[in-house]
């Protein structure tokens, strides 16, 4: 009986190569009567001639077959199947979600993790096009305006040590990015659910619209002055992230990304007398490399929702 079942199972697997079922659809009919399902191309299932593996021999298929020797009898009494199921098992699983040729849209929330003095939370949107399964080119846009807030630390340091730390404020940012996926894998949760995930590195260049915030002499150095108004700066970014697939077209991701740019911070010196009104004394003499390291959490939607494997299984 085991031999017959194995032969039918292998025959069905071979016959259904090229069908449209997905790699992770390890669905077996409840009836288990695999011969009742015609092959996808209509060809008859060829009989296979192989010895059945002994129970608990380490042969997965053999073990499974030995535990279900009466399945064919059960199927004969079962009701007709309402939904179509693809009864396949693959020796090597195909990649769960192919990316090449698909567009990825990613709304996310971002928060600063490295700045003790002011946080730059943002809402963002990413758009990627995957031209291979591991390489993508894309854009992302961050909106910071109205979401920023200064930390208590800045206030306490100013009050206790009379030291003012210059800070900045962001309005928006947009970047051209390249993404590479060097690492992927899958996790089993309590040996029951399987999650596919990948890790990626991302980097790019773009623009950020920022301004220095006057904390040393805010009475004179107001945002109405051009020196303290928003200006575009060239920004570079690099990051790493992890993406966990919920479906073949939906995933959530977490990312750590550093946006680096040059900022003219407020000068910590205040000129005396008439010179206090001189704009040339308001900003630091040289720009400072400013890093905004962010943690980004969001969702990813892949378009189109479906795809087909182009290579044989």
């Amino acid at each position: 009986m085991k031999r017959v079942f194995l032969a039918l199972l292998m025959g069905l697997t071979l016959a259904t190569v090229g069908a449209t079922a997905s790699a992770q659809d390890m669905t077996f009919g409840e009836d288990g009567d695999v011969t009742a399902e015609p092959a996808a191309d209509g060809a008859a299932t060829p009989p296979a001639d192989g010895a059945a593996a002994p129970a608990d021999s380490g042969d997965v298929i053999g073990d499974l077959a030995s535990q279900n020797t009466d399945t064919s009898a059960q199927t004969q009494d079962s009701a007709p199947r309402i939904t179509e199921a693809s009864e396949e098992i693959y020796a090597v699983q195909q990649i769960y979600a192919l990316r090449n040729g698909r567009v990825e849209l990613s709304p996310y929330w971002s928060t600063t993790v490295n700045d003790q003095y002011v946080s730059h939370p943002a809402v963002g949107l990413g758009l990627n096009y995957w031209w291979t399964n591991v390489l993508a080119v894309g854009l992302n846009f961050n909106w910071y305006g109205g979401l920023e807030n200064e930390s208590d630390l800045n206030f306490h340091v100013r009050r206790s040590t009379r030291l003012a730390v210059p800070i900045t404020e962001y309005q928006l940012g947009a970047n051209l990015n390249f993404t590479y996926v060097p690492l992927y894998g899958k996790f089993s949760m309590f040996n029951d659910y399987i999650f596919q995930w990948d890790a990626y590195i991302v980097g790019g260049v773009g623009l950020m619209r920022t301004r220095p915030v006057a904390v040393v002499d805010p009475e004179i150095r107001t945002h109405e002055r051009p020196e303290f108004n928003y200006q575009f700066r060239v920004a570079f970014n690099v990051g790493i992230g992890i993406r966990v697939f919920l479906t073949r077209w939906l995933a959530f991701f977490g990312e750590l990304r550093d946006y680096a740019y040059l900022e003219r911070l407020e000068s910590t010196d205040v000129a005396l007398g008439e010179a206090r009104q001189d704009p040339s004394t308001w900003l630091a003499s040289s720009p400072s490399l400013t890093n905004n390291v962010t943690a980004q959490l969001g969702l990813t939607v892949f378009f189109p929702f479906t795809f087909e494997y182009r290579l044989p299984r």
Binding site: M26, F28, G32, L64, Y96, D192, F245, L246, T247
Partner: peptide
């Protein structure tokens, strides 16, 4: 769930 392996045949419960 999409990532839940949907098995209803001989692999069910494995």
């Amino acid at each position: 769930h999409a990532q839940e392996v949907q098995i209803t045949g001989p692999l069910a419960g494995q």
